[in-house]
């Protein structure tokens, strides 16, 4: 048993060392908030997801694509869980180019739930041309693609400030205290009451930041809820099995004069 405790503490130490060393140093302390999807039983806040989708589609989506997410995902379990009719209506509000048809012509049609989110620009070059050379990154896995994850996105959205004296900004460049290098080509996207929430929630910058970040977390990890649920069951199962095997082992080893 003494050996076992030694072994466990070494394992714990190594995993701790590994996790701390893989987190690179952060420059500015990020803003924190209570995310409902963290922890053993973490789940998305359905209201926040629906509001977050509204922020994404009314604000972000004019520049940022989300090319790996489909409209049908919006109605799936563990997501914003819009009703089937709502998903169809949402999809139908976007037009996309399809084809070629039997005559060899391309045509436009309303999107269907099975389609991926329609992109704001045809391609990366078009996106760059429209945004002063900077490509607005695709948002499908954005929170996983940034050190600091959701806290970083949440902070960045609220991190716009006037540049401190001594820092000169070029045309179309803004100061953000959480951005790497503090210079960002995206103007502050949110301002109080920029949108009107369908559920009547007060649309402060903080509220919108939290909602849209929750939505982005779901977009990046659509199966997060089932992962947490399955994880809990799997670990409980393993613990019970481990205990049973431990006592079996004790019983078997009691036949020999040796300690396990």
């Amino acid at each position: 048993m003494k050996n076992l405790i030694k072994l466990l503490s070494v394992l714990a130490f190594i995993s701790l060392a590994v996790t701390t060393s893989s987190n690179s140093a952060e420059t500015t302390k990020l803003l924190k908030t209570d995310w409902s999807f963290k922890g053993l039983f973490g789940k998305f806040d359905r209201g926040a997801l629906q509001r977050g989708y509204q922020v994404y589609t009314e604000v972000c989506a004019s520049c940022h694509s989300m090319k790996y997410v489909s409209y049908r995902n919006l109605g799936e379990k563990g997501g914003p869980e819009f009703s089937e009719a709502e998903v169809k209506a949402i999809a139908a509000s976007f037009e996309l180019t399809d084809g070629p048809n039997a005559d060899g012509e391309m045509f436009t049609r309303p999107a269907k739930p099975s389609d991926k989110f329609v992109m704001p620009y045809e391609n990366v070059k078009a996106a760059q041309a429209a945004n002063g050379g900077a490509y607005p990154p695709d948002m499908s896995v954005l929170v996983k693609a940034r050190g600091g994850g959701v806290d970083y996105i949440y902070s960045l959205l609220q991190g716009y400030e006037d540049a401190p004296s001594g820092i000169t900004l070029d045309e179309g460049v803004y100061y953000n205290k959480y951005m790497y290098g503090n210079k960002i080509k995206m103007a502050a996207p949110l301002s109080d009451d920029l949108i009107e929430y369908g559920d009547g929630t007060n649309a402060t910058v903080e509220q919108m930041s939290k909602d849209v970040t929750t939505f982005l977390m779901w977009a990046a990890e659509p199966h997060l809820e089932s992962r947490h649920q399955m994880g809990f069951k799997a670990i409980i199962y393993l613990i019970i099995l481990t205990v049973l095997v431990y006592f079996s082992m004790k019983k078997i080893w009691s036949r020999v004069e040796s300690e396990v």
Binding site: S22, R146, G231
Partner: peptide, 14 residues
């Protein structure tokens, strides 16, 4: 299991 279910991306680079 803890890594897989609760911090699957902590060991990778963003």
């Amino acid at each position: 299991a803890f890594f897989v279910f609760y911090s699957p991306n902590i060991l990778g680079h963003a």
